[in-house]
Amino acid sequence: MKTVGLLLGQALRYVVYTLVHVFIISRLVLFDAGWCFFYLGFVLFLPLGTPVVVQLLLAFGMGLTMDIFYDTGGLHAAAAVLLAFVRPAVLRLLRPRDGYDAADAVNVHFMGPAWFLTFLGVLVLVHHLAFFLLELGSFRHFGFTLAKVGASWAFTCVALLIVQLLFFPVRRLRQ
């Protein structure tokens, strides 16, 4: 019963992130160079104990959904899969001294702002570098691409931080 609830919850998260991204966020552009990769929240905020293979598959599915809407073939999928592959390594690097608690989650209130911002910043940066360099397919307009990475990075990080502050529980649930 608990597993079914978990699966339904994740499916709901997938639908919400997709719809919000497609309907609202994808229309927003910052300084003509920054996009908000809001849908990354789906992959970033998965539970800590999610198996690597499941993370990779979910990221691939999410990326492919975005590719369908943006007509980019497999560009979003490639970058999102890379993100999901790097995520466990970053989690391992940021592990607290006594390991993760069973009740821990990717949540700015539980883990503290320093932990959360490092986690978010590093992963989003990796994703954006991969995404924009792949999209370009070469090193022309390198400066402009870096500007795109920078603006998008700031935009995505701020948006996901706002999502965390507004919609994530402040107290741990009783187990």
């Binding site: 690597v52 999928a77 490639a78 792949l134």
Partner: peptide, 29 residues
């Protein structure tokens, strides 16, 4: 398994990305 699945998914994504520019391909995606 993580590395293998990662490799397979990346290859699929990049294949879809690279071939998406051609006019001939009537793709679902």
């Amino acid at each position: 398994q993580g590395l293998l699945v990662f490799g397979v998914l990346e290859v699929i994504s990049l294949y879809l990305f690279v071939t998406s520019s051609s006019y001939q391909r009537a793709a679902f995606f």
